[in-house]
Design a protein around this nucleic acid. Structure first.
Lengths: 171, 171
DNA sequence: CGTGAAAGTAAGACGTC
DNA sequence: GACGTCTTACTTTCACG
């Protein structure tokens, strides 16, 4: 493992330089639209040679900017037509309880994602279930009853639409 | 285009048969973990021949079970360290306003996803911004001021953890 | 429908500028 | 760092069980 030239002390946002030039930006944008975009197309789109493109993408991966690639599935057609966002509020806010929550809940069947948030609620749990009954059971069995959980408010998710231009907000 | 043997009349959930056998399940699960999993590995994992695997995956795509493949990015490292979930409540609930909301908002820079939900709020907008100031501007400029929007409650997103076993809930 | 083997295509490593 | 070429590995097509 190559050690970083600047060991960057613990801090929130790595805000040194452009960090991403126009080429990187183009590559990330393309891979965001289609994670299986072939290297040739990637290279043409960014205006660089194929071999250079391989190197750039690898660099992006090694620097952690590109985390991974995942398939997008239609949960309804997979037999999970009932989706919900469950807002969770903690009572004691014990550090141990809060920390364990996301970790444990993310591994439960049907959990799409867990959001640790500020405000009225502490967590949002995005779940998918085969039927409303399954959803109810999931909430009662896995969320409401959990240590430290004070309240759970369930909202049905009618539709999810992914953003198409997230990157445009990056400096 | 091959026409469907069963034109399936308008209805909510396609709940005919297994719809997915064990092979399909294995393929989807693998592609969920890594959308770039090579066909060879996919085939071995599912216990089928490579050519069969190609056919199965294509079938899953054509049936709409596999929608697409997208790269996972580290928003913070991309210069968007401030994430928020903005809960939106509508006033009049005009069909036109509600319909247009998700469509338009999803295209705005910084928007990760838009959730149309039931309950106290009508929408959740997941956004990413470079700084808290940018977030504030985004909410005021693009959400609060929008036609039909009565209230917007912003919660910072500290951490997002994707579920690791969504499929296990499928029947 | 599933399979094996051959043809077509893309990805990754190397030497050079 | 970026490039072009070459080797390797993967995907895909096809005739067949």
């Amino acid at each position: 493992m190559p050690k970083n030239p600047t060991p960057r002390p613990p801090g929130p946002a790595p805000r040194e330089r452009p960090l991403l030039d126009d080429v990187d930006r183009s590559l990330v944008a393309q891979l965001l639209r289609d994670g299986r975009t072939p290297n040739v197309v990637l290279a043409r789109g960014a205006g660089i040679a194929e071999s250079t493109c391989v190197a750039r993408v690898r660099s992006l991966r090694e620097r952690g900017l590109l985390a991974g690639v995942t398939a997008e599935v239609d949960l309804a057609r997979l037999g999970l037509p009932v989706q919900a966002m469950v807002a969770i509020r903690f009572s004691g806010h014990l550090r141990a309880d809060v920390d364990a929550f996301a970790e444990e809940v993310s591994g439960l069947p049907g959990v799409v994602a867990t959001y640790n948030i500020s405000g009225t609620y502490d967590f949002l749990v995005h779940v998918a279930a085969p039927t409303p009954e399954h959803l109810r059971d999931f909430v009662l069995d896995n969320l409401t009853g959990r240590r430290g959980v004070a309240q759970a408010e369930t909202s049905l998710v009618f539709h999810v639409k992914r953003g198409t231009d997230v990157l445009a907000a990056a400096p």
